[in-house]
């Protein structure tokens, strides 16, 4: 790579938008080129200056109160509007099956949201600290995926498609295997957020169940208990090819354990 090709790539490199091969090529060039190294340093300095926390405006308490009140009013309004339960069943019967499933999932989400509120009154002082946030993010991400049009970003039952798809997007691509023969078919993968971290998620199907396997950084996983449950959904921790991971689904405990054993097993 020469300067002419490297220069326009410096920003994409800084922004983490180059694929691995390009990034490596650029690094090799920058190692040997003082001009590009200086340009990259200047970009890094600008970034550091822009990311100074003093430039950020925190929401004033008055706005927080306003939004809380609006949420309260909004939830009440919608509850009142859907209060006429008599036609609920009939309306339901006209909807396609997937939308009933989505509605059920969203309902579970609301229930989850309510319990989250209990452990974390007003988002301030956390009761269980960081691990409560992680647990919350895991379930919230799973429920959001269930409610979304498609729970996967890359749809494939072929591990040779899914693994390279991750490679360009997260620091370490997870171990991807298909367990269709054992009843757990690989459906694809996506990137989701746990806290501020982008994490790879493997998606499996088992009968009607949609299963998310979150692959977590060690620091995030350290705070998690081996298993936990929220509103009929369960999470089981395991290790996937050396990385910590968590299975989140609405499967029975023994089904989750069976998948965890498969994932946990050496290749």
């Amino acid at each position: 790579m020469d300067c002419k090709r490297a220069a326009p790539l410096l920003e994409a490199y800084l922004d983490n938008e180059l694929d691995r091969a390009e990034a490596r090529e650029l690094e090799q060039h920058v190692d040997g080129c003082a001009a590009c190294r200086a340009a990259l340093t200047r970009l890094g300095e600008l970034r550091a200056a822009l990311r100074d926390r003093s430039l950020r405006h925190a929401a004033p308490a008055s706005l927080r109160e306003r939004i809380d009140a609006a949420i309260h009013a909004e939830t009440g309004r919608v509850a009142a509007a859907s209060g006429a339960t008599g036609r609920g069943r009939r309306a339901n019967a006209r909807l396609p099956a997937w939308s009933r499933l989505a509605a059920a999932c969203v309902l579970a989400f609301a229930a989850g949201g309510a319990s989250v509120y209990l452990w974390k009154p007003h988002g301030g002082a956390t009761v269980a600290g960081e691990s409560a946030d992680v647990v919350h993010d895991l379930f919230a991400a799973h429920w959001r995926a269930l409610a979304a049009a498609s729970p996967v970003d890359v749809v494939s039952s072929d591990r040779h498609t899914v693994k390279p798809w991750f490679a360009g997007k997260v620091a370490q691509a997870p171990l991807v295997r298909d367990f269709a023969e054992q009843g757990f078919a690989l459906a694809g993968g996506r990137i989701d957020y746990v806290g501020a971290q982008r994490v790879p998620v493997l998606v499996y199907r088992h009968g009607q169940h949609l299963i998310d396997v979150f692959v977590l950084p060690e620091t995030v996983a350290a705070a998690l208990p081996p298993s936990l449950a929220r509103e009929g959904y369960g999470a089981v921790s395991l290790r996937l090819g050396g990385q910590p991971a968590v299975v989140v689904s609405d499967m029975d405990g023994h089904e989750s354990a069976a998948l965890a054993r498969l994932l946990d097993a050496p290749q």
């Binding site: 950020r56 939830t75 989400f109 609301a110 949201g113």
Partner: peptide, 24 residues
């Protein structure tokens, strides 16, 4: 009924990312 749930979902999202929204 899904409406109630949806409201809760969005409300929580707004609360969580209120600083980001206000800053923008």
């Amino acid at each position: 009924m899904s409406g109630v749930a949806t409201g809760a979902w969005v409300g929580e999202l707004a609360q969580r990312h209120l600083d980001a929204a206000y800053n923008l």
